[in-house]
Every structure is written in structure tokens, then in C-alpha cells.
Nucleic acid binder design. Structure first.
Length: 308
RNA sequence: GGGCCUAUAUUUCAGUGGUAGAAUUCUCCUCUCCAAAAGGAGCGACCGGGGUUCGAAUCCUCGUGGGCCCG
């Protein structure tokens, strides 16, 4: 194969929370001259550091990281935002003749970027959502049926969020020129060769790691972080939307739950989250599952990079 | 030592003399711009002995565990 036809390569590291993805990604970046694109729906927010398990400057060991701290937690970041910024980052990294390493636990974001499914370029419509959110799933389904029979036939009938979104898309397509609805996803897939490595870890081991990590977070000052965020104007309500650690710590700081309950809930809910992540990843048959050992992952990556 | 209350799912609690119900945990699953989100499915229990009864998890009694009051 000629030099010209060689596809650019991208490495993807996925796995549940606390599986040790970040360290492995840094090690790979060091060894193979890469830069890391984080695929984490909450690490994109500035100031959410300890509770999202965000990598520290020191842990980065000089490897550039992208898609961290790109949005204020007061605003809402979407999968589409991720898609755009990540595509841009990939291009820049390649221009620097380095390998993009996508690493993160938000499978939905990774699929939005590299997966088969196209995410329509229709921005959220808060006004419409507000109206629709008051309706029952039956009512929503009726509306969707009138607008788009095809989508109505394959949608999850009992999921209000999906229904609202589907209606939102129908409403918008009426107004937006068709051209804007297409995106350049397929282009990415044709252009690049991708390896997806999943960090494989037993449930018992995962539980242990999660609990250990939560302990560490409190020692690092998670309570202080949340207090500061609130002092700087991040509402308890928004904290609840952002997710577990922040939701739970916020409850504690408002004296709604005890300290013991806070820790217990954090452990349980983080573990549940990890399970949900795995449910998502399991569907992707292209993922190669490897234990969390740097040597094993390096070996597999090396094989991938040498091919072709 | 005397008296009272209580015992149902991992947990917290409903409940009825006639096939035991919820929330939660756990397991599995779905996913087209909130994704640590939103949703679906499944597993799972009447403390033990005796009695009353056609039939007891339910009523009575003893035991055991738990809680409380008086001394």
C-alpha cells in the first residue's frame, strides 16, 4: 500500500469509571507520541475536578489533553458540542503529526463522534421541551406519530426524553434547510483506522477501586470543592443535574442526608453507573477487552500501529 | 423482677381469615444533542413451635430476637 493511502490511526480507550483509563492513555501517549482527547461528559466543565476524577497536571506528565474544562458548569454541554470540538481536536493533533488518543467513559459521546448513528444537527429547543415535558408518554407518542411515522415505529415508546427529542427534531427539520442536517461523521470513519480498547475488570475489583477512589476524593477535598462551586454561584439545583458526586455532596451540605449516607450512596450509585457504562460498551463488538495493565495495552496498540 | 409494643424481600415499610404489595438493593437490558441522563424487564419475604379454623402470614398461646416503660 502506498504512503498516500495509509489511513491515519486513532486509538480509543474506554472502560468504566475507576478502571484506570487515564493512566494507561498517558502511558500510550508517551510511548507512541500521542495527545489525549477526553470523552467525559462532566470533565468538560471547569471547576468540576475532584468529583469527576479529572486528571491532574502532574498526572498528565506533559501529555496534552483536550476537551477538559471547555465549558462553564452553569451552561449545558451536549453530545453535539463534544462531536464538533473533538473533530477539531483530532484534525489539529494530526496536523502536529501526533496520534489522537480518545479516552473516556461516556460511550454516548464516543459513538456520537465515531459511531454509526448520526446525531441530527438540531439544537435543543428549551421552549418546546418545557411544553412537551408536561405531557404523558402516550400523548407524546401520538404527536410523534403524526409527525414522523418511521421514527415512531422504532422509538422507545416509554421514554419521555427520547420522545421529546424526536418531536423536537421533526419540528426543526420543517424550518432548517436539509443540508445542515447532514454531518461529516462518515468522513471520519472512512479516513481513519480506529482501534478501540476496553479496560476489562471484574465487578469485585471495580467495587474495590471505586470505594478506594471515593475515599481519596474526600481526602483531596471534595467537600471543599463543592462548597466553593456553590459559593461561586453554582446552584444546588444545577449541581443535582450534573450528577452523582455533586448531587449527593450537595444533599449532605444542605443537611438533607448524613455523612454515612452520603458515602454509602456515592459508592452504590457510582457502582451502578459503572454497570450502565459497561452495558453501553458491551454492545460495541469492535472493542478489544484488555486487563488494566500498561504492558498488555501497549502490546496490543503496537500491533495495531505496525499493521498496514 | 413487673408491664407494653414489635417480628413480611438486602433494607425501609404496606397489607388481608381465602394465590402477599410498594420503594430500595441486586441481576439483565434499551438508547440518534441533558448520558453520572432517561427508560424497560427479572430475582426476591410473611421468625420458630403449638392451638382455633374447611382454610392462619393474618386470631390465640408459648418460645426466640428486637424496641420501650416502671422498678
Amino acid at each position: 500500500m502506498s504512503e498516500k493511502n495509509k489511513k491515519t490511526k486513532i486509538i480509543v480507550i474506554v472502560g468504566p469509571t475507576s478502571s484506570g483509563k487515564s493512566d494507561i492513555a498517558v502511558a500510550l501517549a508517551k510511548k507512541f507520541k500521542g495527545e489525549i482527547i477526553s470523552a467525559d461528559s462532566r470533565q468538560v466543565y471547569k471547576g468540576l475536578d475532584i468529583g469527576t476524577g479529572k486528571i491532574t497536571k502532574k498526572e498528565m506528565r506533559g501529555v496534552p489533553h483536550h476537551l477538559l474544562d471547555v465549558c462553564s458548569p452553569k451552561k449545558r454541554f451536549t453530545a453535539s458540542d463534544f462531536n464538533k470540538l473533538a473533530q477539531k481536536a483530532i484534525k489539529e493533533i494530526i496536523a502536529r503529526k501526533k496520534i489522537p488518543i480518545i479516552c473516556g467513559g461516556t460511550g454516548f459521546y464516543i459513538d456520537a463522534l465515531l459511531g454509526d448513528k448520526q446525531i441530527p444537527e438540531v439544537p435543543p429547543n428549551p421552549k418546546l421541551r418545557k411544553i412537551l415535558e408536561k405531557k404523558t408518554v402516550e400523548e407524546l407518542f401520538k404527536i410523534l406519530k403524526k409527525l414522523d411515522l418511521v421514527r415512531a415505529s422504532n422509538i422507545d415508546v416509554k421514554n419521555p426524553r427520547r420522545l421529546v427529542r424526536a418531536i423536537e427534531i421533526c419540528e426543526a427539520i420543517g424550518k432548517v434547510p436539509k443540508l445542515q442536517i447532514q454531518n461529516s461523521k462518515s468522513e471520519i470513519r472512512n479516513k481513519f483506522k480506529i482501534i478501540k480498547i476496553g479496560i476489562k475488570i471484574s465487578n469485585e475489583e471495580l467495587k474495590k477501586r471505586i470505594n478506594k477512589r471515593i475515599d481519596k476524593w474526600f481526602k483531596m477535598g471534595l467537600l471543599k470543592e463543592v462548597k466553593n462551586l456553590h459559593k461561586n454561584g453554582l446552584s444546588w439545583k444545577r449541581m443535582g443535574e450534573i450528577g452523582l458526586e455533586y448531587k449527593i455532596v450537595a444533599s449532605y451540605l444542605q443537611n438533607k442526608i448524613s455523612k454515612e449516607e452520603m458515602i454509602l450512596r456515592m459508592q452504590t450509585e457510582t457502582y451502578q453507573y459503572a454497570k450502565r457504562q459497561m452495558t453501553w460498551f458491551k454492545r460495541d463488538k469492535n472493542i478489544v477487552w484488555i486487563p488494566p495493565k500498561i504492558n498488555s495495552v501497549t502490546k496490543e496498540t503496537n500491533k495495531f500501529l505496525k499493521n498496514e
